[in-house]
Amino acid sequence: MAAPLICPSILASDFAMLGEEIRALDAAGADWIHVDVMDGHFVPNITIGPDVVKALRPHTKLPFDVHLMVAPVDPWLEAYREAGADILTVHPESGPHLHRTLGRIRQLGARAGVVLNPGTPLVVLEDVVDLVDLVLLMSVNPGFGGQSFIGSTLRKIERARALLDAAGSKAHLQVDGGVTAANAGACVAAGADALVAGTAVFRGGPTAYAANIQALKSA
């Protein structure tokens, strides 16, 4: 079984030192940089705008995996792509026409992803699976870091993997929320190939990042 991609969420980083944090994650062996964008409307928090993403882009060549927790989402796609996003993931609930939104992301030259909250059914993927490069399953309700992993997500990972395989999709299957070395192995065994982790990566400061990332990869 291949090691999963590790995608540290900078939501858990030191916001006063974001550039340094990005460089440290790169040096520590991160695969993608996960950027949680929250608007205080779709979720109860406010985080990172496109200008911040643009400022961080020169600090690494790693893909920027930008999770857009904003509504309406369509007006922001171009701004985040121009700022340096390589992957743009959107919630079905954040706009009226998911198929159109995913198509627009691809027109902009980015990879397109769909994010499913714990209460969002997998059926929404069935008619857009051909436009999806990434499926992100939330294992917490989005809005804040540091939450505990919802155990029933493991069954949802299995069902999502079966859906993607049946469709012949090569999309990545990513999990986000409460991911630690204690449950990372179960997520991968269920079918995930990419893990978003915040606290589990950033615990202990920059000198611990490499060991924390390796612990997740080898769990």
Rank of each mutant, 00 (worst) to 15 (best):
K170N: 14
F15N: 10
T101N: 01
E20N: 13
H41A: 08
M138R: 11
P75W: 06
F15W: 15
L25P: 03
H91K: 05
H34N: 07
K170P: 12
N45A: 13
E126N: 02
Q147H: 10
M138V: 13
G49W: 07
N183V: 14
P75D: 03
I46G: 03
E20K: 14
A3M: 13
I6H: 05
G178H: 09
E126A: 12
V179H: 03
R155L: 12
H172K: 01
D39G: 11
D14V: 02
P4V: 09
V73S: 02
D193G: 02
V124T: 14
L125A: 09
V132D: 00
L122G: 13
L56V: 10
P72I: 06
A160W: 03
A189I: 01
A12N: 07
S218N: 15
I6K: 00
D31M: 04
D165P: 03
A110L: 09
A55T: 14
P92S: 13
L88M: 11
R111E: 13
E82F: 04
H41P: 06
I87L: 11
L68G: 06
A190H: 05
G146V: 06
G143H: 08
H97I: 12
F144D: 14
A2D: 11
L125P: 05
Q214F: 05
V123E: 15
V114N: 00
T120D: 04
E20H: 14
R104I: 06
N117S: 13
A160D: 00
P121C: 11
A71V: 09
P118E: 05
I10S: 00
P8Y: 04
E20I: 03
A85L: 08
A200F: 09
Q214C: 07
L68E: 02
H91R: 12
V124A: 12
V124Q: 08
L173M: 06
L154E: 06
D26Q: 13
A71K: 06
F15P: 10
K61E: 15
L131I: 08
G191R: 00
V70C: 00
L62T: 08
V115G: 00
E93V: 08
T153M: 10
L195Q: 11
M17A: 15
L116P: 10
A162M: 09
V140S: 13
F202D: 01
V196P: 01
N212P: 05
S152Y: 04
D130Y: 08
G49V: 09
V140R: 10
G95Q: 15
I105F: 07
A160P: 01
G19E: 11
A27I: 05
L18P: 01
A30D: 00
I157Q: 01
C7Q: 03
L131T: 02
